[in-house]
Design a protein around this nucleic acid. Structure first.
Lengths: 193, 193
DNA sequence: GTTGTTCTGGAACGATTGTTCCAGAACGGG
DNA sequence: CCCGTTCTGGAACAATCGTTCCAGAACAAC
């Protein structure tokens, strides 16, 4: 006895994610969101709640998508070093060609809101833990397979890798100089050499 | 034949810096600025121009203050390792006690605006170069004095240190777990060991 | 004291903010 | 068909946004 939804909820949320990702929380207006999501203003409020709630849902969505990407990249069989190299090189490459450098939505959220908004802090923190976990498992596998014998404290190195990745992504927002970014990657990866 | 300024220009700019630092560009309103700076609305516009111009001036100001701090810390005679340890430990310590974690204004500016605003990109980039230079000179000194014989490419390591510092500061916004942050510092500094 | 400049507080500007209300069209199940 | 739900576009809301205008007070040089 009810009418069906005309729009795809997931697709709309994905669009919202891209808006918040590119513009941040404060600079993204409901107007922008309505236009980019391609749905009605009222539908937005009915389906996703207010702006802040929508933002948190978009952040969740990003965590799932990006988490899966990192997971798959690090879980692929073969050299762990090669996987890490792939991950970091991808950031350098991406930030050089991408027209509007959006960085990492999680990193952006930490920078803009995590200091003042507990929910954002919690979400970014748990995403950090998830990524750290992926790094950790990859390092353990590398140790077991004899590739990373030099790694003494895999938990610490995993945390370091996440922090370095965020630092690199941040730098890539300011500079487009390839050599600078490659230098950072080179030294970072030397830790697992 | 003119009336003197009633307020201290530098002091007002310093206050503006703190507002933008804590809240970011978009979330800081002129209202906030007027109140915190303790000057009149009109005086703000007459003295500093519009919001965007004021933001860039505040960013410059931060660059000077923070640049001098890092410069002095790294230029002090004695062990370079100890100076680096001091710098990174200071971040960990600071982010644990500081009530409202503001992070680094430069990092915040990169995250929020550098991808879309050329002036912000230029300013954050040149600040990055300055900090990188301070790291570079310290590393060179360490090599000359025999403390850092293992450092092969000081330019690359300097860039790495800046990126790592930003990554650490970013993580400190999301988590308050001391062990996590100390792990990052430990592995980071192992590069210059 | 007069004159000229610049300060100050407050009102006012139009635009945009996030959010809600409304009327009607579109659809599914009885 | 009809009833009930939910879609849609647009108007409307009060609040706040960045910015400008204005009238008068405060001061410096003459």
């Amino acid at each position: 006895m009810a009418r069906h939804k005309e729009f795809d909820r997931d697709e709309a949320l994905h669009k919202a994610m891209e808006v918040f990702w590119a513009r941040g929380y404060a600079a993204a207006s409901i107007q922008d969101l309505v236009k980019q999501m391609g749905i009605n203003r009222q539908s937005l409020y009915d389906t996703f709640g207010d702006k802040h709630t929508l933002y948190l849902k978009a952040l969740d969505r990003y965590g799932e998508v990006e988490g899966r990407r990192i997971f798959e990249l690090l879980e692929q069989p073969g050299s762990v070093k090669k996987s890490l190299r792939q991950l970091f090189d991808g950031v350098v490459e991406g930030s050089l060609c991408e027209g509007q450098r959006r960085g990492c939505f999680m990193g952006n959220a930490m920078s803009e809101l995590a200091g003042r908004c507990k929910e954002t802090a919690a979400k970014t923190c748990s995403n950090m833990a998830a990524a750290e976990g992926a790094f950790y498992r990859a390092l353990l596998r590398g140790k077991k397979e004899g590739e990373l014998k030099a790694v003494r404290d895999p938990r610490a190195v995993a945390r370091f890798l996440y922090s370095s990745l965020q630092g690199l992504i941040l730098m890539a927002k300011a500079t487009q100089d390839r050599k600078t970014l490659e230098d950072v990657v080179k030294v970072t990866l030397s830790v697992v050499d």
